[in-house]
Amino acid sequence: MNIFRLTGDLSHLAAIIILLLKIWKTRSCAGISGKSQILFAIVFTTRYLDLLSSFISLYNTSMKVIYIGCAYATVYLIYMKFRATYDGNHDSFRVEFLVVPVGGLAVLINHDFSFLEILWTFSIYLESVAILPQLFMISKTGEAETITTHYLFCLGLYRALYIVNWIWRYYFEAFFDLIAIVAGVVQTILYCDFFYLYVTKVLKGKKLSLPA
């Protein structure tokens, strides 16, 4: 464990908690893409199946349980409890165009053709594009609530910090996982235009609104 990975995990945890609290406190999931949240629930489920089979550390296990629990709680709030506030019309990204190619790629390019390894690879590839329905929804509505932009900033920052963690591990532990690195770089690149808007607008107290 290094400081970059720890702050990355805490940034990821902050994002998940911010979103859950935003929906719970405002009793509304307006502006939130339910499809992205379903994809994140799939990402955690397929990646953390080893929860049952291997124990790495209390930190590792507890974070996985929290991530999975919050992900399903968020999906539940969006599609069940506060479904009346779910903006289905703007959450129209065709996720099958993500899941099918990612599934095919995971079968073709992986470290080991075993069930758990292919699921893990699928989870890594899926995570890199899971935010697209959310970013697509914001481009369609042309704006995002400020709390949602903080959620997205923390979420984007987490994988950016993981990239620094991989550089650190490469030099100090001679460890690197090309699949995770390439997917992580793609994932972080997808946030770049949002990061630009976040820094130039939200941090200056303005509302995030895209030129419609």
Binding site: D50, S114, A180
Partner: peptide
């Protein structure tokens, strides 16, 4: 193969 290395990242 790679999968022998413990996957310790979240």
């Amino acid at each position: 193969a790679f999968s022998e290395i413990e996957k310790d990242e979240l």
